[in-house]
Amino acid sequence: MHTLTILLLSSLALMAQASHQTVGVRGTFMCGDKPLVDAEVSLWDRDRWPDADDRLSTVHTDKNGHFEIFGTDDEWLSIEPVLKIYHRCNNKGWFNLPGVCKRKNSFEIPTSYINKGQQVGKWYEMGTMNMEAKHKDEDSKCT
């Protein structure tokens, strides 16, 4: 029982030392030579088991395929930011039916873009990316 109390108090002390960390990403997605309009862009903090990943923020690309997203998480270890985009660019077959499936691409954001506090310190600039080609480790999200 004494060991359990020490572990519990140690865990609480570590959580009390958690700090706000913020990351921001911006860029433009294209589908061939056309802007990828209204694609869902989500920023996540990848966590390790048993803690589930945290969705920090979600936006949609504008009429020019541009997006700007940032998110903050309160963690005691460094956050592991991942940008996920869900889209239908170059979807083939029945996967392209409305409401069925979207392509899902994930991009790990370098830790050098994480800022302590609740403001973006340095934006990760993705530039312009053509989402037409299949990417390594691409997945799909079906509803």
Rank of each mutant, 00 (worst) to 15 (best):
I79K: 04
P110F: 00
G65Q: 01
G71H: 01
E68L: 11
W76M: 10
W76Q: 11
F107T: 01
H66P: 07
S106G: 06
R88V: 15
F70T: 08
P98T: 04
P81G: 05
V100W: 08
D74W: 13
D73V: 15
I109H: 00
C89K: 02
N90L: 01
K84M: 06
N91Q: 08
R103G: 09
V100R: 15
D73S: 14
L97H: 06
I69K: 00
L77W: 11
H66A: 15
S112K: 09
H87Q: 06
G99K: 11
T111R: 10
F107H: 03
F70I: 04
F70D: 12
G99V: 07
G65R: 03
E68V: 09
P98I: 03
F70E: 12
W76S: 09
C101T: 05
S112G: 07
S112T: 11
N91A: 12
R88L: 12
F67V: 02
E80L: 12
W94Y: 10
N96V: 07
L97P: 03
P110G: 02
K84E: 03
G99N: 06
K104E: 13
L83H: 02
L83M: 04
E75T: 13
E75V: 09
N96K: 06
E80Q: 08
D73C: 09
K102H: 10
P81W: 02
R103W: 09
K92L: 14
L97K: 04
H87M: 03
E68T: 14
C89W: 02
N105E: 11
N91H: 08
E75H: 09
K104A: 13
K84N: 03
F95K: 12
N64Q: 14
G71I: 00
P98Q: 01
R103A: 04
F107Y: 06
D73L: 07
S106L: 04
S78W: 14
E80A: 09
E80H: 13
H87E: 06
G99E: 05
I109E: 00
K102R: 08
H66S: 15
N96M: 04
F70Y: 14
F67E: 06
V100H: 14
R103I: 02
L83N: 04
G93H: 11
G65D: 04
N105G: 07
C101W: 02
G65Y: 01
E75D: 15
S112H: 07
S106N: 05
P110L: 05
T111H: 07
K92P: 05
R88T: 14
F107D: 00
G65T: 01
I69L: 07
K84Q: 10
W94P: 10
L83I: 05
S106D: 04
R88C: 09
S78P: 05
W94Q: 11
T111Y: 03
E80F: 09
I109Q: 00
N105C: 08
H87S: 08
P98C: 00
H87T: 07
R103P: 05
E68K: 10
N91L: 15
T72H: 03
P98R: 02
S112Y: 06
R88W: 09
G93K: 12
C101L: 03
S112W: 02
G71E: 00
N64F: 15
H87W: 06
